[in-house]
Design a binder for these strands. Structure first.
Lengths: 335, 335
DNA sequence: GCCATCCTTGAAACCGGTTACAAAAAAATC
DNA sequence: GATTTTTTTGTAACCGGTTTCAAGGATGGC
């Protein structure tokens, strides 16, 4: 009568007539196993369709093979670009034994107690500059990678925001616009602040006026943006001829506000976005925007995380990817 | 000289002057521990900021506390509604010790080898009717919940598609439309098929003509939809006065196609959608559509999964949530 | 005061792997 | 052929918890 409940690896060992150590060595591709022995063990493994227990392994190796994915607390459902990033991430782990772990929204202590243990590294999407979870994780020896933000001592996957803003501004100026407004993002995020700064710089360099009424604080929120745009375009104030929104959803919301104010886009005013989310090519008018390579960013972030958790050094602490100006219908030269 | 490397729980036990078993009992809220002992142990735990090792625990309990989230292989980045579902899911696990696990896209065997072990249950989003992973998981004793689909013996979170279609059709008919076209979804999905079927039924019941040229096979894809709509509205064929798209992105794409054909929405033709994705209220014109309660669906799915993995019985094998007709600008009564 | 019952605790086995160490076997050196 | 070196293997400890089982102590009934 065979013991059915025999711990798996011991059963394989028995059937193959070797010790559990040897089976383990075969499983881990340890080089000094005689070919003949290896073959025998492999056969048994195949025959019984054995695969090692994740937990047994993780416990002794102290490795989870999980990468944690942290998105900002206030991530709203309009963060459509997140789907692209996620796609890039899943591509980067395809066919690997790594998994992505989505933590619950919770306090920092809860996070450390219930998540930190389960992961080998983490990717943070656009975290605030002094995210406590990041420092706690690093204290615990878990590498962290950030996307679209900058955190001291954490590898960063990002775009060159200044260059991107400049591309758009130069394009608008070339179209003849000299009254350009900005719909800024959430200014506590370093990237949003940088975009605003570069907007100002470009205006200055081109001898264009910076009117602070034309800098709208959209905070990446559609509702807020809608209100501010309607407000700007009501009454007899002087109006810009182009509005550069720091993300696409704000641009779309702005267009809506303008239409509701009976102002035509692009005939009466040019509106441009930032991100190139999926829907940007299907809105009416379709959106002129700056494309961020989100899928790539997701892949690179995960690749970096994997390298770090395997104690490899990264070639570079910063991976800055290219952006691209995408011209569609929402922009037009000035008459 | 104290042994620093003492296994954690043993260290706590020693400091508290009890056995590891007792510490474990305290950790697991076992009732028959003397209050005084419990207090002593709790103090030590707090003092050393101890929290039990996830892997040690998982290994002996055979529980991972992870819920796997499977999205269809062909999920495209325009599946914006996924963000809402995800939000609902994270809400449902907030402050719990459960986590969401995102598997890599991979073969069924790979999935079983590298993911099945790590999870206690799984939620599948709109899986094809005979998804192999689902049956394998169930064989392995892991409960599965499906959203927006139907799989034998798996609890289902869904809407009443027939009712939803009927709501929209009745609305359109009340507006005076009697030439209504449908942009169907991916017909291998049971829900898409059901919507098509109910569309036909409603036409029949209202003595309206069913013209098969007016049933466009959009497959939930924007590009395909764009082409088919442009095609339908070129040449001298008879045209519908309303188009009912089975999701919002197809509706948005259809509107784009119509505009590019110089046909005005809603003045010349009514276009409606399905889902009520975030952007639907910001497109121009904003979209009349059927709201699916995605956030709710996500929460309910996770709640069901948690109940099942804790061996609780569900109140019901099917949770059918309400839909709502949202009237916006893209629909208009016929003159 | 004695016995049955219930509460409380600890020892040790168990979950299923990995790995340090040492010994045995094979190959290389002289 | 004896000695050294290199491969190959097994034993047993280890990772850090949970749980069964049995025993000791407290309580209640008579």
């Amino acid at each position: 009568m065979t013991n059915v409940n025999k711990k798996q690896i011991r059963k394989v060992a028995e059937k193959a007539g070797v010790s559990v150590a040897t089976v383990s060595r075969v499983l881990n591709n340890y080089p000094f196993v005689k070919d003949e022995t290896r073959a025998r063990v492999t056969d048994v493994i195949k025959k019984y369709n054995y695969s090692p227990s994740y937990f047994g392994r993780a416990l002794s190796k102290k490795r989870s093979e999980n990468i944690c994915l942290v998105i900002p607390m206030n991530f709203s459902t309009d963060s459509q670009y997140f789907m692209d990033i996620l796609r890039g991430m899943t591509e980067a782990i395809a066919v690997s034994s790594y998994n992505l772990l989505f933590p619950p929204v919770c306090s920092d202590e809860h996070f450390m107690q219930n998540v930190a243990d389960k992961i080998d590294s983490a990717v943070f999407m656009a975290p605030p500059v002094n995210d406590k979870k990041i420092s706690l994780l690093k204290e615990a020896g878990k590498p962290v990678v950030v996307i679209n933000s900058r955190i001291e001592d954490a590898p960063r996957i990002d775009i060159n925001n200044r260059k991107a803003v400049r591309k758009m501004m130069n394009y608008l100026i070339k179209l003849g616009h000299n009254k350009i407004g900005l719909i800024a993002g959430y200014l506590k995020s370093p990237n949003a602040a940088e975009r605003l700064d570069e907007y100002k710089k470009t205006l200055y360099e081109n001898n264009l006026q910076l009117k602070k009424e034309w800098v709208l604080n959209g905070d990446y929120e559609t509702k807020k943006t809608y209100k501010k745009v309607r407000n700007l375009f009501s009454g007899g104030k002087e109006k810009p001829t182009a509005l550069f929104a720091c993300n696409d959803t704000m641009a779309i919301s702005a267009i809506k506000a303008l239409k509701d104010s009976k102002i035509r886009v692009p005939e009466d005013i040019t509106v441009t976005g930032f991100d190139d989310i999926f829907i940007a090519r299907y809105t009416s008018p379709s959106l002129t925007t700056i494309k961020q390579p989100f899928i790539d960013m997701g892949s690179k972030a995960v690749e970096s995380a994997i390298a770090l958790m395997n104690n490899k050094k990264l070639d570079s602490e910063e991976i800055i990817l290219d952006t691209k100006l995408i011209v569609r219908q929402s922009s037009k030269e000035i008459k």
